[in-house]
């Protein structure tokens, strides 16, 4: 079952081709990893899917609906949610306000008590219950990242786009984050994740896709991708292959 289908997607900024004729699908219930060198177009791709950017060419389908060209709030309401590489929490709101706001707007006319219940559930799920009344700006980086995930989940998505949620975390925090990603999938939410922490990608993903200068150069299981000579050349490096 394909949940998201991208066809021939192209996006350029001035003369720079950020995404070039990219086609792929995300299957329902999987964890799909996206890796590639800096500037490969990973975040651009997320921006195109979430509606932050409009594609120059190509189409994106979510289920049966065409979503390319729609504004972000519409796409969010249809069931795609995301986190940001550079954390974008609402700094002067409390943790629980951040989450509750997302819960009340993503679905039409959700009753207040249901939104509250969802928020409490997500606080527990993401390990934020102890800091729930703190202002988001006072949180540590790891908690801000968790808050972004909780806020994204509060919109009750079918697909969540996680953009480098493990960057800047220490090994223990990374392990926690990996557990969280697995748990998100177990809740029934499909995961599409950009990550430089390869250990996480290897452990978590059912499939991995590799981008290089906006083009897909490899796709397959983590093992397949890691033994692909082209991937080793442009991204992993010879040393990684020897290990």
């Amino acid at each position: 079952m394909e949940l998201l289908k991208v066809e021939n997607l192209t996006k350029s900024f001035g003369g720079l081709l950020a995404i070039h004729k990219l086609s792929f699908i995300v299957k329902e219930g999987e964890i799909l990893g996206l890796i590639g060198p800096n500037g490969a177009g990973k975040t651009t791709l997320f921006n195109l899917i979430s509606g932050a950017l409009k594609p120059d060419k190509g189409r994106i389908f979510f289920g049966d609906a065409k979503i390319s060209g729609l504004r972000p709030h519409k796409i969010c309401k249809m069931g795609i949610s995301r986190t940001f590489q550079d954390v974008k929490v609402f700094p002067n709101m409390t943790v629980v306000e951040n989450i509750a706001l997302a819960a009340t707007f993503a679905r039409e006319r959700i009753p207040t008590n249901e939104a509250q219940r969802l928020a409490t559930d997500l606080l527990r799920f993401c390990g934020l219950i102890e800091v729930k009344n703190m202002l988001a700006r006072d949180l540590s980086l790891v908690n801000q990242k968790r808050l972004e995930v909780a806020r994204a989940l509060a919109t009750q998505p079918k697909l969540i786009l996680l953009d480098e949620m493990m960057a800047g975390l220490n090994p223990t925090e990374t392990l926690d984050a990996m557990r969280l990603v697995k748990a998100i999938r177990d809740r029934g939410c499909t995961v599409f994740i950009v990550e430089h922490v390869l250990r996480a990608i290897m452990n978590l993903c059912d499939r991995v896709m590799v981008l290089h200068y906006g083009e897909k150069i490899a796709e397959g299981t983590p093992e397949e991708v890691c033994s692909n000579p082209k991937v080793i050349e442009v991204y992993l490096g010879e040393k990684y292959a020897q290990n």
Binding site: R71, H73, K88, F90, N92, L101
Partner: peptide, 13 residues
């Protein structure tokens, strides 16, 4: 606080 984030949680900003 962050207009891009608020658009992405379903608010028609």
């Amino acid at each position: 606080e962050n207009e891009m984030a608020s658009e992405h949680i379903g608010i028609d900003t």
